[in-house]
Every structure is written in C-alpha cells, then in structure tokens.
C-alpha cells in the first residue's frame, strides 16, 4: 500500500474530519470483502473510489452510510460512531449522509415531488410525512431543488414516466433537499451515456460544494476530471490513496491488472 501526502492546505486548516474509517474489516460469511481499511475524509473533499470489479467499493460505501455494520473497526461520521444502538440518534446521524445509486432506487409509482420530499422526511414529524402523501408539503423546497437539477416542470409527473437520466436527476434533487454534510454516490453514471454522465457529474460536484463527496466510479477519466483525490481499492484493501496529480499511470495499471 502506498500512502501519499494529503493536500497541505487541508492539513493546515486541521478541521474535524467528516468521515473516519478506522481499522474496518467486513466479512460476508467467511469471506472478507474488506480488510483493515483506514480512511479519513475532510470537509469539502471530492474523493473517487476506483478499482476493479469486486474490489469492495460498494461494500465500503454501504459501511459508510450505515447499511452494513463493520465486522471489526469503527466508522465515525462527524466525529460520532455510526453504530449507535439508539435508533433515534443513529437516524439523526444518517440524515447527514446522502446516497445516490446506480439504479436510482426511487419509488416509481409515486409522483416526483414525493420522491424529492423523501429527502426531508427525516426532519418532518410522522403526521406531516403522512399528510404530505395526500396534500404535498414543502412544495417550494422541492421546486427549487428540481430547478437546480434542470427539471422544474416535472414536479407532479409520475416517476416511472421519466427517462433514466431524468430519474438520476430526481435522485440528486432528493439529496439536495436532504442537504447532508456527506454525499455518497455508488456508480452514479454507469447507466448513462457520456453527455448525460458529464451533466450528472457536474451536478454532483456542484451540489457537493462545501460537502464531502465520495463516489465509486468505473470511468477513470471522470474520476480524474471531477475529483481531487483518488482511493484505489484492490482485493478489499486500499491500494493507493492520494491526490489525482500524485497518482502515476503505473499505479493505475497496477490497480487494474488481471494477474494477482
């Protein structure tokens, strides 16, 4: 494993890390998907998670948003361990993490506004959330978010009538409304053509301003264009971790090489 120097100005700020992964190992049954991962992300960083298929990128993201709990080690968000046994506190923490998926995971037979509002459900009391299904709440917030992703007129469309690119933008609007401190994206563009990929990446990096952004990507050129830090994963271990400018083409080739 090669550890490269982190950008000096961030160290100078010495702010609290947004995300901290300490000695995390995760096993599916007896197979270890990730071994001894250490990773620290500071506010405002844009990190691309790259590596061959099966390296553990998705698993790592699932550990970061609390879908999975590490077998050993801890994941801390904003300085607090994510594995809080108190569901209320854990939910409050999870509201600070937004995730965008390759398959969007929208509720397809609801209207767009409800899918966008899903981002703020965590902040609403339950009766407001239920009432909103009958009489939509937070319309202005939703409209603004949709305008930012370029779908201002789709507020009341049925989600399954939208194209793939539009659905991904609805998913981003949901994150905008959620306004988390940390943004995760799992292969956000692998279902889209190059033009739409650029659109979505621009949106993600724009929304992510001031937030910590970490996304897994297969397309290397996108990683290099839109992110400033690359984390290479190979066989469940961190292979390299450093600024885009510091990673050599040899390291990339090594990361993706076929033979062990």
């Amino acid at each position: 494993m090669l550890r490269l120097n982190r950008s000096p100005d961030r160290l100078a700020k010495s702010s609290e890390p947004h995300l901290q992964v300490q000695g995390v190992t995760y096993c599916y049954g007896n197979t270890a998907a990730l071994t001894d991962i250490n990773l620290t992300l500071y506010p405002g960083e844009r990190v691309a998670l790259i590596g061959p298929s099966g390296a553990g990128k998705s698993t790592l993201l699932k550990l970061l948003n609390g879908t999975l709990t590490p077998t050993t080690g801890t994941v801390s968000v904003l300085g607090v361990p994510l594995a809080d046994p108190n569901p209320r506190r854990r939910r409050a923490l999870q509201q600070q993490i937004g995730t965008v998926y390759q398959q969007f995971h929208l509720v397809e037979n609801l209207r767009v506004i409800h899918n966008v509002n899903a981002g703020q459900l965590g902040r609403w009391p339950w009766y407001q959330a239920l009432w909103s299904l009958v009489w939509p709440q937070g319309i202005e917030t939703a409209r603004q978010a949709l305008a930012r992703v370029g779908l201002p007129d789709k507020l009341y469309s049925r989600t399954d009538r939208l194209s793939g690119g539009e659905q991904q933008r609805v998913a981003i609007a949901r994150i905008l409304v959620q306004d988390p401190a940390i943004l995760l994206a799992d292969e956000p563009i692998s279902n889209l053509d190059p033009a739409r990929s650029h659109e979505v990446m621009t949106l993600l990096t724009h929304c992510g301003q001031g937030k910590t952004l970490i996304m897994s990507l297969h397309a290397l050129e996108f990683a290099q264009t839109y992110c400033e830090r690359l984390v290479g994963l190979r066989e469940g271990k961190i292979f390299f971790d450093g600024l885009v400018t510091a990673i050599t083409p040899q390291q990339i080739t090594q990361l993706y090489r076929l033979e062990p």
Binding site: N65, G66, T67, R90, R91, A92, L93, Q94, Q95, Q96, I97, G98, T99, Y101, Q103, H105, L106, V107, E108, A118, G119, L121, G122, W126, A129, Q178, P180
Partner: peptide
C-alpha cells in the same frame, strides 16, 4: 431498495 434508501437517510 427504495425503502432501504429512505432508512439510510435517517427516516423512521
């Protein structure tokens, strides 16, 4: 999956 996505973003 849509349900789990909601759960991940801290919805009860």
């Amino acid at each position: 999956q849509p349900l789990l996505t909601l759960i991940q973003s801290g919805v009860s």
